[in-house]
Write a protein that binds this DNA or RNA. Sequence first.
DNA 1: TATCGTTATGTTATCGGTAACATGAACTTA
DNA 2: TAAGTTCATGTTACCGATAACATAACGATA
Lengths: 341, 341
Amino acid sequence: MVTIYDVAKKANVSPMTVSRVINRSPSISEKTRLKVEAAIRELDYIPNKQARSLISKATRLVSLVIPDISNPFFTRLTRGAEDKALEAGYQLLLGNSDESADKEAQYIELLLSSGVDGVLLAPAGDGSAAALNKLTKRGVPFVFVDRIAEGAACDRVIGDNADTTGRLVRHLVSLGHRRIALVNGPSSISIARERLAAFREALQREELGFDPALVIETHFKQDNLEDIVRQLVTLAPEARPTAILAANNFIGVNTIRALRQLDLAVPEDISVACFDDPEPIPEYNPFLTVAAQPAYEMGYKGMQMLIERMERAAPDAPRTVVLASDIIVRRSTAAPPSSRL
Amino acid sequence: MVTIYDVAKKANVSPMTVSRVINRSPSISEKTRLKVEAAIRELDYIPNKQARSLISKATRLVSLVIPDISNPFFTRLTRGAEDKALEAGYQLLLGNSDESADKEAQYIELLLSSGVDGVLLAPAGDGSAAALNKLTKRGVPFVFVDRIAEGAACDRVIGDNADTTGRLVRHLVSLGHRRIALVNGPSSISIARERLAAFREALQREELGFDPALVIETHFKQDNLEDIVRQLVTLAPEARPTAILAANNFIGVNTIRALRQLDLAVPEDISVACFDDPEPIPEYNPFLTVAAQPAYEMGYKGMQMLIERMERAAPDAPRTVVLASDIIVRRSTAAPPSSRL
DNA sequence: TATCGTTATGTTATCGGTAACATGAACTTA
DNA sequence: TAAGTTCATGTTACCGATAACATAACGATA
């Protein structure tokens, strides 16, 4: 391995002078600089980041911890985070928590020893708080994206769940739906709680009753939803929902799949709308009506805020950035069967 | 920051003893071990990886460099690579090359200074060779997944492009197609070359002529293919293809989108088949006939081979692993219009 | 009990950089 | 031309861990 000493010897200067050249110290004569730069090139010298980190206490590594990289929503978020990180000279350590607080905690433990300078996190649930305390204790800043964990006062970039849910409900109501079901994620996850609360409020605003039987909790990940959907569509006709609101793209896709297994047509028999676009085929066969959250922007903005924290360029008080969604109406929503009689 | 010295002082031993406890050296008395472990717990000590790397020359960081994480094929590959890496105690640095050899080279430069122990790479093209030479020069092992770059003798995990292409062509021919177009990726990428070669051979085997006008090169990334597809479908009737083979999932999806813009129905007017599944909605509306490559396995196996290299547990000679694909016939392929008259 | 062999622990030097201080050379200025 | 400045460069020590060697402690053996 070529070290700063090899370069120094070759250029006939002290290692410190080489270090100064590398770090663009102003007090270096043009002549020495050129001499050292030539030696660096000749030896193909690359500074050792580990040695540097040992002194500077900074690794220029950041981590992005997400629940599921196979979800296109998080893929786009990752792109945004990576772009911003590279732009600012940081490298990205990727971690999947698989929606498990345990795996997440394990991963954070690992990050602590890797000496990451900061963590961008879509927490698996409120159980994340304990692991996050360790980060705080070590002075490693972190920022929430998409979701938050209760009990941690930090920057966050989140979607406007209240507004988005309200608009999705209004869209369905305007088509004539009066009984809308919500297939939600686990209530241990902030966005699931927020979407449920917003759902109740939206129903109230539309002067529709809230029926707990029409709210079902499942996972945000790929799953077979046949049982859950059957439960909804086999309710008595007057209790049966005419539309299903899915709390994320996977639930949306799997709801449609389950409906098909149950021989129900979308949107003829029942309408479906969901949060987040199931890319990469959002439109080749326009199907799901969705609330498309700005995933890339969330990642980008989240990383930006994290970098500001790491570089102590942010105010002490935690900041919250709320990003709006676009409602994209496609073919999975239509007037309910009854109104078409 | 809590160091090994703090622990040593607290436990009333020398730093070396603490180091021995951490590294499970056998020659440590039970009594001392417990004492030191207590101090570690009490102080919440975490070893500093940077300092360790300085001596060991190993960072336990590996990098995965892929052309495009927004492609579900690479997402699944990433999952596989990450799972295997974590299993073996390595952490994953993620890099997107965006199909650009320049970005890739820049990224590899960055990796060199981060001191990664190895690189798993789906090269952006043959232009990658130069950057890879630098890795070789520094003794950083790398392994190709999915694609290879000419001029680098290293382990590789690739799909069986010849066989897969042959089977896709046979599927189309068996439906009655005689004129099949290939919308391929850039010929600077190995899989595009292999698929083209296999395509020619398959046509020959099926005793069909090869028409260069029916082979078009485009990008593997999201793109508007309307011009390209128009070029194909506006050929004279006797020269016009009745089926299009797309060299990856994005090209497949975008071909169908383009056909729709041109008011052509799939599969009634023209059939489409492609490599790689456009997840996450492969089946909720069965559409694309695809050759599904085992992406997860590619990532997993590739990482495994890389780890073997890094830990010098592999034979010197480069190894090649070829993984077969599944042909999944869905609704985008059918008999050509003529045969249905 | 003197000697030896283990086993457990400590000391010193080092990995590759850089901060902090020291020094030397060149240039002013009186 | 001697003293004071300024600028360029070198020296020394240290970041946090550990390899290599040194030594202390202990029990076994004659």
